[in-house]
Computed example of a mutant assay.
Amino acid sequence: MKNILVINSGSSSLKFQLIKMPDETVLASGLVERIGQERGKLSYKSEKFSVSEETEVPNHTAGLKAVTKLLMDPENGVIKDASEISAIGHRVVHGGDKFSETIVIDAKVKATIKELFSLAPLHNPPNLTGIEVAEEIFPGAPQVGVFDTAFHRSIPSRANRYAIPNSFYEDQKIQVYGFHGTSHKYVSEKAIEYLGKENSKIISVHLGNGCSITAVQNGKSIDHSLGFGPVNGLIMGTRSGDIDQSVIFYLINQLGYTAQEVSDLLHHKSGMLGLTGYSDLRDIEAEAENGNRICQLALEMNAYRIKKYIGGYAAAMNGLDAVIFTAGIGENSDVIRALVCKEMDFLGIELNEAENGKRSKDFRDISSGKYGVKILVIPTNEELEIAKQTYDLIS
C-alpha cells in the first residue's frame, strides 16, 4: 500500500486528497482557499475528524504546511510523519507538445512547465508553485506531474491542426492541445468498463464552469472542443465558446477594443453570464422555470451547441456507443441533459426521463434502452485519476 498525496494548486487555492493506493481509499481531503488574501479558509475532512475555519494563509507554503499539520496531528491525523507519503501527484494544466504522459518531476521538467506559462498563464504558474512548495515540505517524496493536455496528444493531425500557414505550427507550436484530459480519461475508462468492449466509440461531455467535449475512440482522444486555449467550443459559465473571428476584428477595428479587452470579454464576461447576467446554471434554470425568456434561450443555445458537437463527433467516429455527462453541471443538471438528448433518436440517443430526473452521486445509465446508445452519468474524479497515474508510475 502507498499513500499518494494529490495536489491541485490554483492561483489562490490548494485542493488536496490523500489516497491510499491501490485500494483507492481516501484518507483525507480538503481545500485551502483565499491564499494571500486578508483571511484565508481551510477545509479538511477525514473519517474521524473535520474542520472548516478562517485562518491566515499568506502563501502556498503556509497553506500546505497547515494541511500537513492536520494530516500528522497526534490525535486526529491519518499519518504519523511525512515519510508515510509515498509520492505527490500534481495536476498540471498545460504540457504543450512536451509531455504526452505522466512524469517524475525534476529540474528539467520544472523548467519546461515554466516555459509553457504563456500557454496557460492562469494555471501553470500556480501549478509550478504547488510543486515547489511540496518539494520543500516533502523532500523525500517523488513529485509526479499529471498533465491535463496529455490525454489529447493522441488527436490525429487532421483534427489538431489549424488551417493557417504551416510555419505557425512548426515554429510556434500553434495547434489543438485540449483540456480537462484527466477528467475525460477517467470517465471514458469507466464507460469502457461498463460497456465491456475495448473497441468503443464514446463522446464525453464535461460540463462545469468550464466545458469541453471529447470524441474517444478505442480509449483514445481523437477530437476535442477546446483547442490552443480554453475559450472555444461549448458555451461556458463566462467563456463564449465558438465565435466568428470577424466579431473579434470588428470589436478591435470598429469599436475600439484593445486585444486585452477582447480577451477579457470572451474569457470572463461572455458565455451564460453574458447571455443572462448569471454564471451559475442553477440560477439560470430557476429563472427559466419562472418564465425568464432570456434564460430559456440561453439554455437552448447551450444545449444546441452540445448537440452539434455530438453529431459531428459521431460522424467522425462513424458510430456511437455511449454519451457521458460529467462534472458539476453534467452530473447534476437533468434540465441540460434533457435538452441535449431531445430529438436525438436518429443517433440512437433517447433518455429514460424518470431516471434522468433522479438525484444521485453514483454512476448511472439513464438511457431508455430502446436504442443502442448508452447515456451515462459518471461522476468525475480527477484526484483519483491523478493518484492512479502517480501510483502506476512509481510502482
Rank of each mutant, 00 (worst) to 15 (best):
A259Q: 11
I222V: 12
G229A: 08
V216L: 01
D242T: 11
M236E: 09
L251C: 09
A259N: 11
M236D: 10
G227D: 02
Y250I: 04
D244H: 09
P230C: 13
L251V: 07
Q217P: 00
G219F: 03
I222T: 02
H224V: 07
T258K: 14
V216Y: 02
N253Y: 14
M236G: 11
K220W: 09
G256P: 02
M236R: 08
G256K: 10
Q254E: 13
I252N: 06
D242K: 05
G237T: 08
Q245C: 13
L226H: 03
H224S: 09
L234S: 04
S246D: 15
V231P: 01
A259W: 01
H224Q: 03
N253V: 12
I222F: 05
Y257Q: 09
G241H: 06
G227A: 09
Y250D: 11
T258R: 04
N232R: 09
A215M: 07
G256C: 10
S246T: 15
V247Q: 03
I243S: 09
I235M: 09
V231C: 01
S225V: 04
D242V: 09
S225I: 02
L234N: 05
L251A: 11
Q254F: 00
I243C: 01
S246H: 13
R239M: 10
S221A: 13
D244I: 06
V231W: 05
N232L: 04
G237R: 08
Q217N: 10
T258D: 10
S246R: 14
S246E: 13
F249W: 08
Q245S: 14
S240C: 15
M236P: 07
A259T: 14
N232H: 08
I252R: 03
L251D: 04
S225G: 06
G229I: 09
S221L: 09
R239N: 13
N218E: 15
G233H: 05
D242Y: 01
V247M: 10
G219D: 12
I252G: 03
S221F: 02
L226A: 10
I235P: 00
Y257K: 13
Y257D: 03
D223G: 07
H224N: 04
